[in-house]
Write a protein that binds this DNA or RNA. Structure first.
Length: 577
RNA sequence: GCCAGCAUAGCUCAGUGGUAGAGCAUCCGCCUUGUAAGCGGCAGGUCCUCGGUUCGAAUCCGAGUGCUGGCUCCA
């Protein structure tokens, strides 16, 4: 048997044992579902009282007792109507609902797993032989979760547990969680003095000088590659008349996420997206087919009223800057244009070494435009994916309300994925705004519109970048690129000369004078994630050299000062890490 | 928004009905240092906010705000 299958069985079986423990504690508990997940398992319950953290060790202990009892997992099947009767009798409404759904789908029989007289659960399995084989487990957290993931339904109590084959694997995973926590961009952001959040504006990041350096460097890079790809850059207002949002469809489809205000007794909305503004710019003049594709970039600050519970550092905010662009083109051009964007995204992500995957998101429940338009748009995106030869997943019903999209998801240090780049194909907005261009035939035609971002949100991208690098940003992004650390006052003059030379090369460099011990200054420089720590003692002054301590590699290297400056400047200019 | 938890000095945290504490950082001295914390001292608090219980509340109760972990949602 494959290891993954075995682990899945262990975890899923552990979830059954958790349910047994919970039923022992609360015989009246109603059972939801309890699958195996990435690092363990969970089970959902409706309980007579809220669970508190102190309950977890009690349940954990009960599970251990059940494990030691080695109760066998017995599999059997039952006619579906008998199963329904059974669950009606024992009053388990959620299980009943699941079985009734199975019946509606035409199932005749259902599969059960039972553990002696202690527990029985409708379950496709498979399971381990007996409860003694559920491996090493640890209950970790209590959370709320809607029945069947629907916010309209009751909220059940979910208990999460880690589950592994043995103690060693469990400990290894716990170690990983600890290490991952050290990469938390919220912590590192504080240490590096990059940004802050304040009660006065939940979800609205404040950028400090160091954070602004990172942002501005990223933006410089962004401008450079977009200029190369023949993009124009525009900027549109943050607050626009409500009327515009009716026309764009945002009023009907996105109102819950928007902020509103009044000016001179007229209603205005704060933009949640940049596209309507971009379209007004397009409509300013008439366009020829010769101008297409027209690629208009915009670093647009958008505000979205996200639910309070979802805010999460820079990963999920209520105000963020999209590195947006709208591409207006002909239907013939659209596949090449999308492909161009896909390649640009790949170039940028490769530069930072980010792992990512692509999802194709299709028509959502709330949407505008005709069936044919959606079909053509989705087919076009599929064609591009095939042409590019990249793997992808389908994300049914997750498209924008105006069109389907390709989403690029980056993985963070905890293996959570975050949507960053997106390319959206839109036939609707050009229609709503009556966009036109004059074709070679002298007739008016309607352009196709692409919405796209590469970083997605500058904020989120920086957050992921921090976690990815543990704050040790590539030289070209580091707020302070190098710190000179003289051993004592005797080398100050030499240090100042070196600093002047480095500043001439536009490096961000500081001298940390010997007010504190050498050890302390080095420690501080490492905490601040300064990528180059340059030690200067009498030896270095004598040789006109520098000793470079590399935080990541934990080693040092002596190099001639001029050679070093030349080498590092080249790296920074090429944006090498 | 929903479920649960948390909120004490700039930071990390201790204190759980009876005068508010530590380490680090800041500031002031001393130390002139060779690769992750040299030594001493001063100062720093509306114990998140509002209300209630109590002779007395940082501590107990209620509401609000923010944060954390989930759910739903999303760049």
């Amino acid at each position: 048997m494959k290891k993954d299958e075995r682990l899945e069985k262990i975890r899923h079986s552990a979830s059954h044992v958790l349910a047994m423990a919970v039923l022992e504690m609360f015989p009246e508990a109603k059972l939801g579902t309890g699958p195996a997940i990435d690092n363990g398992f969970y089970y959902d319950f409706e309980l007579p009282r809220p669970l508190i953290p102190d309950d977890l060790p009690i349940l954990q202990k009960k599970m251990t007792t059940i494990k030691q009892a080695k109760i066998p997992f017995e599999h059997y099947t039952e006619k579906i109507d008998d199963a329904i009767k059974f669950y009606e009798k024992i009053d388990q409404a959620y299980k009943l609902e699941l079985i009734k759904d199975l019946k509606e789908k035409g199932e005749k029989e259902v599969s059960f797993y039972k553990n002696g007289d202690a527990f029985v659960d409708v379950c496709a399995g498979p399971h381990v032989e007996h409860t003694g084989e559920i491996g090493a487990f640890k209950l970790t957290k209590i959370a709320g979760s809607y029945w069947r993931g629907d916010a309209e339904n009751t909220m059940l109590t979910r208990i999460y547990g880690l589950g592994f084959e043995n103690d060693k694997d469990l400990r290894k995973y716990e170690k990983f969680l600890e290490e991952a926590k050290k990469r938390d961009h919220r912590e590192i952001g504080k240490k590096m003095d990059l940004f802050s959040f304040h009660e006065e504006g939940a979800g609205f990041p404040f950028w400090h000088k160091n954070g602004m350096i990172v942002r501005n460097e990223l933006i410089d890079y962004w401008r450079e590659i977009h200029k190369r790809e023949n993009y124009e850059e525009i900027s549109t207002p943050i607050i626009l008349n409500e009327q515009l949002w009716h026309q764009s469809g945002h009023w009907d489809n996105y109102k819950e996420n928007m902020y509103f205000t009044q000016i001179d007794e007229q209603n205005f909305a704060v933009k949640p997206m940049n596209c309507p503004g971009g379209m007004l710019v397009y409509k300013e003049k008439s366009h020829s087919y010769r101008e297409l594709p027209l690629r208009a970039g915009e670093l647009g600050l958008v505000h979205r009223h996200e639910l309070s519970g979802v805010l999460h550092g820079l990963f999920r905010v209520r105000a963020f800057t999209q590195d947006d662009a709208h591409i207006f083109c002909t239907e013939e051009q659209m596949e090449d244009e999308i492909l161009g964007v896909v390649n640009l995204i790949d170039e940028v992500y490769s530069k930072f070494g980010f792992p990512y995957h692509i999802e194709l998101s299709t028509r959502p429940a709330k949407s505008i435009g005709s069936e044919e338009m959606w079909e053509l748009a989705e087919k076009t995106l599929l064609n591009v994916l095939k042409k590019s030869g990249r793997d992808y997943q389908i994300n049914e019903g997750d498209g924008a309300f105006y069109g389907p999209k390709l989403d690029f998801h980056i993985k963070d240090c905890l293996n959570r994925t975050w949507q960053c780049a997106t390319v959206q194909l839109d036939f609707s907005m050009p229609m709503r705004f009556e966009l036109e261009y004059t074709g070679a035939d002298g007739e008016k035609h309607r352009p196709v519109m692409l919405h796209r971002v590469i970083f997605g949100s500058i904020e989120r991208f920086i957050g992921i970048l921090i976690e990815h690098t543990e704050g040790l940003l590539p030289f070209w992004l580091a707020p302070v690129q190098a710190v000179l650390v003289p051993v004592n006052d005797a080398q100050m003059k030499y240090a100042e000369e070196i600093m002047e030379k480095m500043k001439k090369e536009n490096m961000r460099v500081e001298i940390w004078t010997p007010e504190n011990s050498l050890g302390k200054r080095i420690r501080q420089a490492e905490i601040n994630r300064i990528p180059q720590i340059l030690i200067i003692g009498d030896k270095e002054v004598e040789n006109n050299s520098l000793t470079i301590r590399k935080p990541k590699e934990k080693q040092q290297e002596n190099m001639g000062a001029n050679d070093y400056i030349k080498k590092i400047t080249e790296k920074i200019n090429k944006r090498e890490s």
